[in-house]
């Protein structure tokens, strides 16, 4: 009985933190879909209002799925696989079973953030053209 109470306490406080595949948003959510923390990368805001809405929605859904999956895992660990299967038969499949991957969106995620601009490596000076001119087929 004490183990059950302990499990209930753990499940009530459980959250999962997930970053969107494009790296612009991070969400901590409970299994009930409550957003406990939300971080937006400044580059996400540059992609426009629609992208912000879409990316945040996707990330909250991924974090919630992940939290639900962790709940199932904890329950299976505490009560045994048999009980976890019984619960799934009542409550429905865990995200691991019902989605091909609980931490990846089922539909294509929003557009990737543009890569950071990096300075080009300085070009190596190569004045030795002899090897090129030695092969006449390259000169045609």
């Amino acid at each position: 009985m004490r183990a059950t109470e302990q499990l209930q306490r753990e499940l009530a406080a459980l959250t999962a933190t997930v970053e969107h595949p494009n790296g612009t948003c991070m969400v901590t959510a409970s299994p009930k879909g409550e957003i406990k923390a939300l971080h937006l990368h400044p580059s996400l805001l540059k992609q426009g209002a629609q992208a912000v809405g879409q990316v945040v929605t996707e990330t909250v859904q991924l974090a919630t799925n992940s939290a639900v999956q962790i709940s199932f895992n904890k329950m299976a660990l505490a009560l045994g696989d048999g009980m976890a299967i019984d619960v799934e038969s009542i409550a429905g499949d865990s995200p691991f079973r019902s989605t091909w991957n609980p931490v990846v969106a089922p539909k294509p995620p929003a557009e990737q953030a543009p890569p950071e601009r990096r300075q080009r490596a300085p070009r190596v000076e190569d004045t030795d053209d002899d090897a090129f001119f030695e092969n006449p087929s390259w000169l045609r």
């Binding site: 879909g33 805001l45 209002a49 909250v60 919630t64």
Partner: peptide
């Protein structure tokens, strides 16, 4: 469950990442 849809207006982007979050 998680939110079904989150919509942000273009003007909201001026709140910055922390304010908007």
């Amino acid at each position: 469950g998680p939110p079904q849809q989150i919509a942000v207006s273009p003007a909201a982007l001026r709140m910055g990442p922390h304010g908007l979050a």
